[in-house]
């Protein structure tokens, strides 16, 4: 088996007295799409910056692409791509000029630069926008351009910090198709997102809450976690015309541990022995289901808060 692309052990990052990342351990395999989830301010961006060597680790150790980021951050950075949370290319430069600039910065020879950018333009389809100012591109095209610039030097690992935030659903889906093509080439991807459907598409997911990595596993594994479905309880998916009122009523019942609206339906965690009739659900269509990833994250966040 190939050595992991990222091997982080007890990574801790502090800003003064604030611990932004607390003893996080994780591995990412070559070609794996790894999702990082968690509320805003939980430490996702900081963890990524730590793994790139942009901020020093207070404790712990991170081996990225076989090198220690604490001592060889420059070499590590030369082999990874990074798309920051905020669009960070030059808006007053055209698409072409941005690509040329990054080709120069990454030390590509003119021939290499030409071949590589043609290859990436083919992949991303930015060619028609070459002479537009980057600042004038729509969100989706900005992200594709950012991706081109992050891929010019053929990195073996790419960090994407909320790449799909604020772009339309079609562009979002296209971007994910692109990411899977990269993964198929053996490139590892670490991606942060707030979208559950995106989390479902990741090979493995880590959930960070208040600086701590609470869970880590495949989406399927996370849904099977015993803590998420307490012994003797089950998850129901309830379809009813008036979900809003039903939700309020369900939440007031002692037999219902949790209830949230989930698209057209309600997801509820109910104790064993509570029959549909007890819940007043004789009229509704009810199916037993496994928890969604959102159910998982909400439940473990709550458990974490209650523990304190």
């Amino acid at each position: 088996m190939l050595p992991p692309t990222i091997d982080a052990r007890d990574v801790t990052i502090r800003f003064g007295s604030l611990t932004a990342v607390n003893r996080v351990s994780l591995t990412v395999a070559p070609g794996e799409v790894f999702g990082l989830l968690g509320p805003n301010g939980s430490g996702k961006t900081t963890l990524i910056r730590g793994l790139c060597g942009l901020v020093p680790l207070a404790e712990g150790k991170a081996i990225v692409l076989g090198r220690d980021v604490a001592t060889e951050s420059e070499r590590v950075r030369a082999q990874i791509g990074y798309m920051s949370q905020k669009f960070s290319l030059y808006e007053d430069l055209t698409t072409r000029e941005n690509i040329e600039f990054y080709s120069g910065i990454y030390g590509l020879s003119p021939a290499e630069a030409k071949a590589r950018s043609e290859e990436l333009m083919e992949l991303t389809g930015v060619a028609p926008y070459l002479d537009q100012y980057a600042g004038r591109l729509s969100g989706g095209w900005k992200q594709r351009l950012a991706l081109v610039c992050a891929l010019l030097h053929r990195p073996r690992l790419i960090f994407l910090d909320e790449p799909t935030a604020g772009i339309d659903p079609v562009a979002r889906r296209d971007l994910w198709d692109l990411l899977f093509r990269l993964a198929a080439e053996g490139i590892s991807l670490v991606i942060t997102t707030h979208y559950m459907d995106e989390a479902e598409r990741c090979a493995r997911v880590g959930y960070i809450y208040l600086s701590n990595l609470l869970v880590l596993g495949t989406p399927h594994e996370l849904k099977q976690m015993p803590g998420v479905t307490p012994p003797g309880a089950r998850w129901l998916e309830i379809y009813n015309a008036d979900s809003a009122n039903l939700l309020l009523r369900l939440r007031s019942l002692p037999g219902v541990l949790q209830a949230t609206i989930f698209g057209q339906s309600i997801h509820a965690l109910v104790r064993e022995g509570c029959r549909n009739a007890d819940l007043g659900l004789s009229q509704a269509r009810v199916v037993e289901t496994e928890p969604s990833l959102e159910d998982v994250f909400v439940t473990i966040s709550r458990m974490q808060t209650e523990k304190k």
């Binding site: 942009l54 950075r77 960070s88 990454y106």
Partner: peptide, 13 residues
Amino acid sequence: EKGTLEQLFMTPV
């Protein structure tokens, strides 16, 4: 201000 410096720091420059 524009956040482009962080991106530059990620490069070998």
